[in-house]
């Protein structure tokens, strides 16, 4: 064993060295995620779809609500610029699919973000405080769960009229329930962990414990669930639009386009195929990314 002065001398010489950058668990997870080929491929495809949706007006000579009287319900044709064909009203399908992507992706991301913020905060508070507070908060969630979703949406439409903003609200209001349950469960198992107790013993306030110690540690399952919620929300929006409760003409979404295409599936297949391919591709990508994230964040669970 070295004596103390030698030890301190060694420490001092070593401490002159530069600070070593640690490798956080997030960075480890990122490295594992980027090794997953399906997830990386999905991210690239999703990136391309998102980019196309953003720069949509630059890509086509036609506007999304512009009627081309010469080509009504014509198939794909490279010569006149309608590369995906036109719909029953003579509008260019390519630009409409990209505008549909805008709506569908925006609904997916925004509704998920709403559900994320409400659900994580609500679940973490319920799980962390436990006892009576937890019981009351979770019974409230149970009550909301038992409301039929379609009934809820139709009521909103009847009272406030059809409005794309309402769809965000309705979807977010439903999706946060599951998120809250997941976060609560995770928080319950974290609550008795020793590092939380250590924070207590130090006198860190409950609010800070929740945001500094609890939430960062439940984020793994939350992110995975989030990537699986986005496609679910997009699907639900498509379903609502298919029923005629979604976005209003002339604006469109993938659900609306698929609904229109399905009506004329025999006469003009392209009207169904193009939006359906985009929707399926997006859902696939989100699911692959979700799988990849789960493997990356929880390497033990594989």
């Amino acid at each position: 064993m070295m004596n103390k002065s030698e030890k301190t001398a060694l420490l001092q010489s070593a401490s002159a060295a530069k600070e070593i950058e640690g490798r956080s668990l997030w960075r480890d997870a990122r490295i594992r995620l980027f090794r997953n080929k399906a997830a990386v491929g999905s991210m690239i495809i999703l990136g391309i779809i998102t980019l196309l949706a953003i720069i949509a007006p630059l890509l086509s000579p036609y506007a999304y609500d512009q009627i081309d009287w010469g080509y009504i319900q014509e198939g794909p044709n490279w010569e006149n610029g309608h590369i995906f064909g036109t719909d029953g009203n003579g509008r260019d399908l390519f630009i409409r699919v990209l505008y549909g992507a805008r709506v569908s992706l925006a609904v997916g991301l925004l509704a998920t973000a709403v559900s994320l913020i409400i659900g994580v905060t609500y679940g973490a508070i319920a799980g962390y405080f436990g006892g009576k507070i937890d019981s009351i908060m979770m019974r409230f969630v149970d009550v909301l769960y038992s409301l039929p979703f379609m009934f809820f949406v139709i009521m909103l439409m009847v009272v406030f009229g059809r409005n794309i903003f309402l769809i965000f609200v309705a979807l977010g209001a439903v999706e946060w329930l599951t998120m809250a349950r997941i976060v609560r469960g995770q928080t319950l198992s974290l609550r008795r962990r020793e590092f939380i107790e250590a924070a207590h013993a130090t006198g860190v306030s409950n609010f800070k414990i929740i945001f500094r110690h609890v939430i960062p540690n439940v984020l793994g399952p939350v992110i995975v669930y989030m990537t699986l919620t986005i496609p679910q929300v997009i699907l639900t929006e498509s379903f609502l639009s298919f029923l005629g409760l979604g976005v209003q003409e002339p604006l469109t979404s993938w659900g609306v386009l698929i609904s229109e295409g399905a009506k004329v599936i025999e006469a003009s297949t392209w009207m169904l195929i193009y939006p359906a391919v985009f929707l399926a591709l997006t859902l696939f990508c989100f699911n692959f990314i979700g799988d990849g994230l789960r493997d990356a964040l929880d390497p033990k669970d594989r």
Binding site: G22, S24, L25, W26, R193, E194, F195, E197, A198, A199, A201, T202, G203, V204, K208, R212, H213, P216, N217
Partner: peptide
Amino acid sequence: QIIFQDPLASLNPRMTIGEIIAEPLVT
């Protein structure tokens, strides 16, 4: 103050040790 039995479980895995040791000071 308190020191725990399981050394790893008593440290928040998402924080650097600098942040962990500094927490009582910051508080």
